[in-house]
């Protein structure tokens, strides 16, 4: 790994200022993507701005309508939060399936979403729950946030500070892990809002997380396994690699969506 200057600011403003000043800087949250990438020599930033010292960025607040999770909150904290378990149990369960225990102790929701790995779990939840990604500059609806393979709507230097999840009527997450990496080979997050409208977020299957409109329409009419039993996702455009063909991923979307609907609570 190339050497770099390490910074650990205490405020969001200081972090943003450090990055602005740097010719080639990068934010570090949990580090479980960026550090392996740097070890492999695929990235060699001059400045690393560690966000873990920003106390204001971590923590969970639940209100009647939404759960707001600070960007620096770890997956383990989300998974074991009684507030999240009560308001959106599917979200806590999903967080509990990210990586392994040691990854969950370090990895954060903000880091995961900012990285937008197509196989990471949070994007499906963000889409299905209709989350709002809050940054130091603005609020971005999840639907506009994930723009492509490792691509997001974030501008250079912009920091995710929190993610706000509206509390649904019911929701569930199903994950079929890549047998080697344990990332989602395909993951499906299904939620039905308090207004009855259903949303289906898919991760792992495509180059970026996406929603399945046909399923959402059917589930909004009748939230049951049966109503989506015949809906197939076309394999075109889905990821195709040694672990899963596009056809298999498309098939998994259907299977996992049905299972998620059955499990939704």
């Amino acid at each position: 790994m190339e050497n770099f200057n390490y910074h650990r600011p205490a405020t969001v403003a200081a972090a943003a200022a450090l990055l602005k000043k740097s010719k080639d800087g990068v934010y570090l949250a949990g580090g479980h993507t960026i550090l392996p990438t740097m070890k492999q020599g695929l990235r060699a930033p001059k400045d690393v701005v560690d966000l873990s010292g920003i106390k204001a960025m971590s923590g969970i607040k639940a209100s009647a309508g939404a759960v707001v999770i600070g960007a620096g909150t770890t997956h383990m904290e989300v998974a074991s939060s009684s507030a999240v378990k009560k308001a959106i149990p599917a979200l806590a369960e999903m967080a509990g399936k990210i990586g392994g225990v040691h990854v969950r102790h370090k990895g954060t929701i903000g880091g995961s979403i900012a990285n937008a790995d197509p196989a990471s779990d949070y994007p499906s939840a963000c889409l299905a729950l209709g989350a709002t990604i809050v940054t130091n500059q603005r609020k971005i609806p999840a639907d506009k946030f994930f723009t492509g393979l490792f691509q997001t709507a974030l501008k250079k230097g912009e920091i995710i500070t929190a993610v706000s999840f509206p509390i649904p009527k019911r929701a569930a997450h199903q994950k079929f892990p890549n047998p080697a990496s344990r990332y989602a080979l395909t993951g499906v997050f299904v939620a039905q809002g308090k207004d009855g409208k259903a949303r289906v977020g898919v991760t792992g299957a495509g180059p970026a997380a996406f929603r399945v409109a046909d399923m959402e329409a059917a589930l909004s009419k009748e939230f049951s396994e049966k109503s989506i039993a015949a809906i197939k996702v076309p394999p075109r455009g889905l990821l195709n690699d040694m672990h899963a063909t596009a056809a298999y991923r498309a098939h998994l979307v259907s299977v996992l969506a049905r299972r998620a609907v059955a499990a939704a609570k």
């Binding site: 650990r8 570090l28 580090g31 479980h32 550090l35 392996p36 690393v48 560690d50 873990s52 370090k106």
Partner: peptide
């Protein structure tokens, strides 16, 4: 996967 410096 933890920077030593972050363990101050």
């Amino acid at each position: 996967t933890v920077l030593a410096a972050s363990c101050a």
